[in-house]
Write a protein that binds this DNA or RNA. Structure first.
Length: 580
DNA sequence: GCCGTTTTCGGCCCGACTGTTTTCAGTCG
């Protein structure tokens, strides 16, 4: 059972207990357990199999949640979860996703009006049954109806935004705001600054002498669909794309504290504030304060905030409360991979298969990126829709590459195009090219493109078999997920990683924003196992080479350093590593 | 329910905005 699945039991228990009006701290324990489990780089199931007492070493998991984890893995159910659902309808959980409806209102609506879900709520609001209930009036009915509309739209659009949508969108907003005179600092915070693979909303922070003109400009941005709230220091809008954007206006002396706070994650902040409290300090978005005297200690720079609680600065990508605080305490935050460490791209397509540009055009674009090499990895024939190359056409492409490299050499250019292919891993685990031709390639990338719905054991065997042939250097997009469109296929990633190690196959971090595959927790696991990662773009256009930035930051989320990445190597060392 | 540089009991992160209030609860991040 996947960690995410186990985690969702606890998140739902937290929601249900909250609706029930239980002790908020008990609620928090369950919610926190959900967060912790979801963020773990090791499979919870594998811990339980090995030695379940290992669970109690995970912070936030005590005796009671330990027992429930074991129960969930063994029985696929949880007694407490079942009992709570007997007391109230499951639709109330969905109600909480409607903006403006929290646990208290959900309970009230259920108790007074018998509301069992979002559809019921919509009917009740349209029939004006809400006004008259304590704390609810006419405005509330309008707001709730609007929120239900937004909720349904977002559900259709799969709720969270891809990095590649939110990132440019936020950058554009920042540029628009920056045009206003008087703005000194402006930064994007939140999950965007942490480079999460999906983004819930965007947070922008500014320092400015006068807040009012910034807020006015903010709510008059042409791309806005709706202004959700507007205050002196905080406003929220929803863009036409559905992306919610928050703006905070701050004093200079608070900027670092606010940046720290609004960057999150929530779990990281709770841990940091808890630490501060134990040291007699209080941290808010306005600064670090002495708990006793209430006196301002520091807050202008983010570094100062961390320093005040005895920590070195922590890169945003690590702030998930997955051990980064302990590392910072010991001064052992790893020197993370930097964009300029990348020396080349080992997975790109040309128009020979389903790309848009030629060998020359892709090579030129890679040189412009400052790379030393690029591997052309067009599809093999099995992926019919992509116009995959048969062995004859592949040989022809190899000759063209050699010819191109020869011309570069004559001109004294050190750049090199590698002969590669993205060879399909068939359903039976065999490869879509013969061993003979694979041997002649500099870089063979293996990938699954069909029969995604195999049973976990079969899929695992399929991939292990492909790796064992010795025909491939790199396993591309190892889980096959398409963010918001397709779930990862079922595969035992522990065994895939162990096999990668055994057969000397590298794993890919596919930087295509819809993929980001492997993800952050898998990457960290691979690093722990000593497997080198190839960060590649899977470019189908020369413009896609820029997507490497998403891969680099995802790698940083997985704690990867320069030494953990295959394509930080220079050409000579790379070729040695690619020998099969 | 979890946890321990004040603690095995008694705490648990903190503040803005909204709509309904006539001083605040609920929601959100």
């Amino acid at each position: 059972m996947e960690n995410a699945e186990i985690a969702s039991f606890f998140t739902e228990i937290a929601d249900l207990l909250e609706i029930k009006g239980e002790n908020p701290f008990r609620v928090r324990s369950y919610r926190n357990a959900g967060l912790v489990i979801e963020g773990l780089s090791v499979s919870i199931e594998s811990i339980v199999e090995k030695d379940e007492t290992g669970l109690e070493e995970i912070p936030g998991i005590g005796k009671s949640i330990h027992e429930k984890i074991v129960e969930i893995i063994k029985t696929k159910r949880c007694g407490l979860h079942d009992e709570l659902l007997k007391e109230m309808p499951a639709g109330l959980l969905e109600l909480l996703k409607v903006s403006g409806v929290g646990p208290k209102k959900a309970a009230l609506l259920h108790e007074k009006l018998g509301v069992k879900g979002v559809d019921d709520l919509e009917k009740a609001a349209m029939a004006h049954k809400l006004k008259g209930l304590p704390g609810l009036g006419e405005r509330s009915e309008e707001k709730i109806l609007a929120a239900i509309g937004n909720y349904r739209n977002l559900k259709l659009a799969s709720a969270r935004f891809k990095l590649s949508v939110a990132y440019p969108s936020a950058r554009k907003y920042v540029e628009y705001l920056r045009e206003l005179p008087g703005i000194s600092d402006i930064e994007v915070a939140g999950s965007l600054r942490r480079w999460k693979d999906t983004i819930g909303d965007a947070d922008i922070l500014v320092t400015c002498k006068k807040g009012a003109p910034v807020m006015d400009r903010f709510v008059n941005y042409p791309e806005i669909k709706e202004v959700a709230s507007k205050g002196d220091t905080k406003s929220t809008v929803v863009l036409k794309t559905g992306l919610q954007v928050d703006l905070r206006v701050l004093e200079k002396k608070s900027f670092g504290a606010a940046l720290q706070y609004f960057t999150g994650s929530k779990a990281h902040n709770i841990a940091i504030r808890d630490r501060a409290r134990r040291m007699g300090l209080k941290i808010s978005e306005y600064g670090v304060f002495s708990e006793k005297s209430g006196k301002f200690v520091t807050g202008e720079k983010e570094e100062d905030v961390y320093k005040a609680v005895g920590l070195c600065w922590i890169p945003p990508e690590l702030r998930e409360n997955r051990g980064e605080i302990e590392a910072a305490e010991k001064g052992e935050v790893p020197p993370l991979l930097e964009p300029e460490d990348i020396k080349g791209d080992l997975h790109v397509h040309t128009k020979e298969s389903d790309g848009a540009f030629s060998l020359e055009e892709m090579a030129k674009a890679a040189m412009d990126m400052g790379y030393e090499y690029i591997a052309l990895t067009d599809h093999s024939p099995a992926v019919g829709i992509t116009h995959g190359l048969d062995e004859k056409r592949l040989k022809k492409q190899m000759e063209a590459i050699e010819d191109f490299n020869g011309r570069l050499k004559k001109r004294g250019i050190g750049f090199r195009v590698l002969k590669g292919a993205e060879v399909d891993i068939r359903a039976d685990g065999t490869l879509d090219y013969s061993g003979d031709i694979l041997k002649k390639l500099d870089c063979a990338v293996g990938a699954v493109h069909s029969s995604f719905n195999m049973a976990k054991e079969d899929m695992t065997k399929r991939i292990l078999k492909a790796m064992a042939t010795g025909g491939i250097n790199i396993l591309a997009h190892p889980t096959g997920r398409l963010i918001g469109a397709r779930e990862p296929y079922e595969v035992d990633m522990e065994r895939v990683m162990d096999a990668a190690k055994k057969y000397g196959v590298f794993l890919e971090l596919n930087s295509y924003p819809e993929r980001l595959d492997l993800n952050d927790t898998h990457l960290r696991r691979a690093k722990d196992k000593g497997i080198l990662i190839s960060i590649a773009t899977d470019s189908h256009s020369k413009f896609h080479l820029e997507y490497i930035i998403y891969g680099v930051h995802t790698a940083r989320r997985g704690w990867l350093e320069k030494k953990d990445v295959l394509n930080t190597r220079g050409l000579k060392e790379l070729l040695k590593l690619l020998k099969r």
